[in-house]
């Protein structure tokens, strides 16, 4: 192979990887409102007896997921700003059944539930603090 072809292949590899990275970054923390009618029972969520009066942030993590740690801090901080919002972090390693039931395809994934356990928002990847607060405020206003 000529040097020029080799350089072209190497450059294309970098370009393709950068494109994938930019797409990944754009999707990170995106909030979706699909499946808002789904109602989660409190007893189906480990570590929760009943949902908080305002909202419950349900985070799905695994122990090998670095962004999950940062997300834990972000959600914990957001929950502590409100008197009636709680945060629970579920390790899917212990509960693969939950990963299947909630169709978790990436970690972290966050569900924001209202007091009745209705899924009001779903965030794939590391959430942005501002969008978490916006979703909480929207739930509290209804």
């Amino acid at each position: 192979m000529t040097a020029i072809s080799a350089v072209l292949i190497v450059v294309s590899l970098v370009v393709v990887s950068t494109t994938i990275g930019l797409l990944f970054r754009a999707r990170q923390g995106r909030v979706t409102h699909r499946g808002v009618e789904t109602i989660v029972k409190a007893q189906d969520v480990p570590g929760v007896e009943r949902f908080a009066a305002g909202a419950t942030l349900v985070q799905f993590s695994t122990k090998v997921c670095a962004p999950c740690r940062a997300t834990h801090t972000v959600l914990e901080a957001a929950a502590s700003e409100y008197a009636n919002v709680s945060h629970v972090d579920i390790d899917l390693t212990q509960r693969p059944d939950i990963a299947k039931r909630f169709r978790v395809m990436q970690t972290p994934t966050t569900l924001i539930l209202d007091s009745k356990g209705r899924v009001r928002a779903r965030i794939g990847g590391a959430p942005r603090p501002a969008s978490v607060r916006a979703e909480i405020d929207r739930i509290l206003a209804t």
Partner: peptide, 25 residues
């Protein structure tokens, strides 16, 4: 391996997390 290392370094993408989740599921 390059794509995984590059995405991890530049974008903080964690391929290991995805693979681990698939193995758990």
């Amino acid at each position: 391996a390059f794509v995984a290392a590059f995405l991890n370094s530049v974008f903080g993408y964690c391929l290991g997390c995805q693979i681990y989740l698939v193995l758990v599921r």
